[in-house]
């Protein structure tokens, strides 16, 4: 499954960018920007249509296993009343991800269904689907007219659900992705509903190169036009060197409270 992207990376300088199919671009991008271990502390700022702002701080730990399946743990650090709330996700190869929610007040992990991919993630304007890794097989990708954004050439790729099941599980009928040709990093995504109406726009800023191929955005902005609400994620710190132990991504680790230390 992962052979093709690897091959593509190797051949990247050889194959002309114009010849790459949209799917290939996405596959390559996915491979390029994956890290084995990553810990990010970020500030989430929620802004409603009247200008009220609400701040949250969360820590996200991601680890890719040898099968290139990712486990992640998201922990709320602030404000005080939600400190310790955690969301544990384990990627499965052939079936939907497993997900557990931990509320410190209840001291138990609550398994949550994956049907909620189109539900908003913890009050932000990102849905669970937006946060998850791209499920390439679930979508059909097509090149649109390339564009130059801020003097950088971009692929513009349209992603639509590939089948009825994907249609049902996705909250969007279509996404338009602006991917920088030089680093294959997505700098803008537009999300459309089934009538073709623009729902949300995500833009990524302050790009940082973590290694030769891997880039990250230190600021992401989601403008939810449908709900007239906005979310801004700003990275406070990022650690890609610390090796995260598998034990971190277990329910025991969470229930015993060690995840907060």
């Amino acid at each position: 499954m992962r052979i093709l992207p690897a091959l593509l990376i190797t051949l990247l300088p050889i194959i002309g960018t114009a010849d790459r199919t949209a799917r290939e671009v996405i596959e390559t991008q996915t491979s390029l920007h994956t890290l084995s271990n990553e810990t990010v502390v970020m500030n989430i700022s929620l802004l409603d249509r009247k200008g009220h702002q609400e701040e949250r701080v969360l820590r996200r730990l991601d680890k890719e296993d040898p099968n290139q399946l990712t486990s992640s743990l998201t922990i709320f650090e602030a404000p005080k009343d939600i400190k310790g709330t955690a969301l544990l996700t384990r990627e499965n190869e052939k079936k939907p991800n497993d997900q557990w929610l931990y509320f410190p007040s209840q001291r138990r992990l609550q398994r949550i269904a994956q049907s909620r991919r189109n539900a908003y993630f913890m009050g932000t304007d990102f849905t669970y689907e937006d946060m998850d890794p791209e499920k390439i097989d679930d979508f059909l990708y097509t090149h649109l007219e390339p564009m130059n954004v801020n003097e950088v050439d971009c692929y513009v790729i349209e992603a639509v659900p590939a089948n009825k099941a994907a249609q049902k599980s996705s909250g969007y009928a279509k996404r338009k992705l602006w991917i920088r040709k030089d680093i294959l990093f997505t700098i803008k995504i537009e999300f459309f509903d089934r009538k073709g109406k623009l729902l949300k726009t995500q833009t990524n800023h302050e790009l940082e190169q973590l290694n030769s191929n891997t880039w990250r955005a230190n600021r992401s902005f989601m403008d939810n036009a449908a709900k007239r609400h906005q979310t801004e994620i700003t990275v406070i710190s990022r650690d890609t060197r610390t090796i995260l132990s598998d034990e971190i991504f277990t329910d025991r680790h969470i229930r015993t409270g060690r995840y907060m230390k």
Binding site: E54, I82, P104, G123
Partner: peptide, 26 residues
């Protein structure tokens, strides 16, 4: 629930626009 913490946790499950007509953001 009987704790403030639990209420704050429940509120994480809602997008604020859902409860906007009923409670101020603060």
């Amino acid at each position: 629930p009987d704790s403030r913490q639990a209420i704050a946790e429940y509120l994480l499950l809602l997008h604020h626009t859902e409860i906007e007509p009923y409670v101020t953001p603060d």
